[in-house]
Design a protein around this nucleic acid. Structure first.
Length: 618
DNA sequence: GATTCCGTTGGTTGT
DNA sequence: TACAACCAACGGAAT
């Protein structure tokens, strides 16, 4: 097939982070070319299939988004669908351009570190093949690169920087949402669409981080067009038994818009929402209205969200009713998402780690990630500089620190994949600057792991905004840097108490009673500090406070036990504060030479009290 | 440049 | 029970 002339554009639209038809600037630009042939394609990227942890719930959600999008195309043009091709984009796209005579490649911009590398490679290949590339922003309120540019070329490290940069872009207003297209041009005829004659490149499927979920043979990459040669959404060939996917949440654009409309109806709530006033102790979040995966997969436009909220604000103001302001209101929450995107954009892969990261203050944490190899690659290993810290980390991870507020939250996280934003603050502060002095990198990994399978992770307590941190790597990493006072935030003396903070929100200890049921009968006075309860009461309430929470640590297994606190919190708090103060005085950042060559250690002295040294056992 | 002010979500004590 | 004052004390923006 010969490439068409510019007057007969053959447009390949590459769907990635935009599984929707409404408000897609890239799709809009593609259709503005007046294509004579239009082919909307999804290429399965093995990087995401095998290297990102995706449980059955998220697989199902993604496939639903794809199916709905495909239906959406079909309803606009019976000859159309989402053409799902089973090969990595770097190898298949050049073959498709040639085979289909593509003149234009159009896609939505993605500033994630991996996506940037991939897209740079694709653009180079397109240039070589004489294919014109059109890229449009669409995933965020503002183009992250433009925010960076308007922020004097620097990553956005505060919400005021974002606001100011946004004002310079368009007086602080994101683009108004675009309507979905009213019609879609035809693809090629059936014969020309067929890819049987193409070579099939193999993909790198080792290691497969999702192997545990594959109950059938993974045939995802065995046929370019799928088992029935029909480019169908791969419900049957990914090897994952989707009957395991128990989530009640449905993917797809129509569902996303329905949920949004439902949320927006509650005008007073939308207008007066202020995040710090939401309780971290309320379990049973309203998990029926999650929009987070929709924002991630792009089945909902964040700009549509913004303007729908703006309409409510306008109405309320007209009626002289109160409206909350940035940064605690809903617009503020969306701006924080943009802030993390525009912080990560110029830093790329380095943003996710401490070594080499110019915005990450260097602190002498325990259990730091090992520095990257010469070629910049990281293997995920970390230095166990202290056995004690390693044990604290494991106990934190497993919810057996002996601090019921922390343990309840960590168990809730493990069981349900969701904890409230302020609950996250508690456990994150506790692991890093306010207790264990363990690197934020370890915590970020655990959040990524535990928030993945269940899909219900949340940055915020606005149910519609419930935000999957795994989906938006920049937000997870950024929040950990924030909480550990590594970047974005510096008031390290503001430390969350594992006792007082929870009590403030939940004096009865209901969250603890639910997730640490062995403590359910403790009275209000002792529920946050069970080790202070008299032995007689512990017996009366059916739970002894002893051991470290491992099953083997107690010989008498007929009786419930709850671990003793793994350290004296006030003592640890002081040690951490001293450590942070010293680290701030030293003033190194991840990109400094002394961090890279390991000589930072000499800057941190040899005092016994340094948190980086082994603690005295008392 | 020095100084002042402010920062999305703290803790403790005292009224 | 609600709220204010104070604690402790950093970086970055504004002045």
């Amino acid at each position: 097939m010969k490439a068409s002339s510019a007057s007969n554009p053959v447009v390949l639209y590459w769907h990635r982070t935009d599984l929707r038809l409404h408000d897609s600037p890239a799709l809009h630009a593609a259709l503005a070319l007046k294509p004579s042939v239009f082919i909307p394609v999804w290429t399965w990227d093995p990087h995401y299939v095998y290297k990102a942890r995706v449980g059955p719930n998220r697989w199902k959600f993604l496939l639903e988004c794809q199916s709905e999008l495909s239906k959406g195309y079909k309803s606009l043009n019976p000859k159309q669908k989402l053409w799902v091709v089973r090969e990595g984009p770097q190898t298949i796209l050049p073959k498709l351009w040639k085979h289909w005579g593509v003149t234009h490649l159009v896609f939505e911009k993605d500033t994630d570190a991996y996506a940037k590398d991939r897209d740079t490679a694709i653009v180079a290949l397109a240039e070589k093949a004489g294919v014109e590339v059109i890229v449009r922003m669409g995933r965020t309120l503002f183009d992250p690169d433009e925010l960076v540019y308007k922020n004097n070329g620097k990553p956005t490290m505060s919400i005021t920087q974002v606001e100011k940069a946004a004002v310079k872009i368009n007086n602080g207003n994101p683009d108004k949402p675009l309507d979905p297209p009213e019609s879609i041009p035809d693809p090629w005829g059936e014969k020309q669409m067929d890819l049987t004659s193409l070579d099939h490149d193999s993909v790198d499927n080792k290691p497969d981080l999702n192997a545990e979920h594959r109950t059938k043979k993974d045939e995802q990459y065995s046929n370019l067009m799928g088992p029935k040669n029909d480019f169908a959404v791969p419900w049957d060939d990914i090897g994952i038994d989707l009957s395991q996917a128990a989530t009640p949440h449905r993917g797809g654009e129509a569902e996303a818009l329905r949920i949004l409309a439902e949320c927006i109806e509650n005008e007073e709530y939308v207008a007066q929402f202020e995040k710090p006033k939401t309780s971290p102790a309320a379990f049973e979040p309203q998990s029926t209205t999650l929009l987070s995966p929709h924002l991630h997969f792009g089945s909902l436009s964040v700009r549509k969200f913004w303007w729908d909220v703006q309409d409510v604000f306008n109405k309320q103001r007209k009626g002289k009713k109160p409206v909350a302001s940035v940064p605690t209101n809903l617009h503020g929450q969306l701006l924080f998402r943009d802030m993390y995107f525009a912080a990560q954009a110029p830093i790329g892969h380095r943003f996710a780690r401490s070594h080499g990261n110019e915005v990450a203050r260097f602190i002498d944490w325990h259990l730091q990630s090992n520095p990257p190899d010469e070629d910049g690659s990281v293997d995920g290993s970390y230095e166990v500089d202290s056995q004690e810290a390693e044990e604290w980390f494991q106990r934190w991870k497993e919810g057996r620190t002996g601090f019921p507020w922390i343990d309840a939250l960590m168990r809730q996280l493990r069981q349900e994949g969701w904890i409230h934003h302020l609950g996250r603050h508690s456990v994150a502060c506790f692991l890093t600057r306010g207790g264990c002095y363990v690197s934020w990198e370890r915590g970020a990994e655990v959040f990524e792991e535990l928030l993945i399978d269940r899909m219900l992770s949340s940055m915020w307590n606005f149910p519609a905004l419930t935000h999957n941190v795994l989906d938006e790597t920049a937000c997870n990493i950024g929040n950990w840097q924030w909480l550990s006072c590594t970047a974005f935030y510096a008031m390290f003396y503001r430390c969350y108490s594992p006792i007082a903070f929870g009590k403030k929100w939940d004096p009865e200890g209901n969250l603890i009673r639910r997730y640490c049921p062995e403590l359910a009968k403790f009275d209000k006075k002792h529920i946050y500090e069970p080790w202070k309860a008299p032995i007689a009461d512990q017996k009366k309430w059916g739970c002894r406070v002893t051991g470290d929470g491992t099953p083997t640590s107690d010989s008498d297994d007929t009786e419930n036990t709850y671990p003793k606190p793994m350290f004296d919190f006030d003592e640890r708090r002081q040690i951490c504060l001293d450590g942070m103060k010293h680290a701030y005085d030293v003033g190194l950042h991840g990109s400094d030479a002394k961090v890279k060559d390991g000589t930072w250690k000499t800057e941190f002295g040899n005092s016994e009290d340094r948190p980086s040294k082994k603690q005295k056992t008392s």
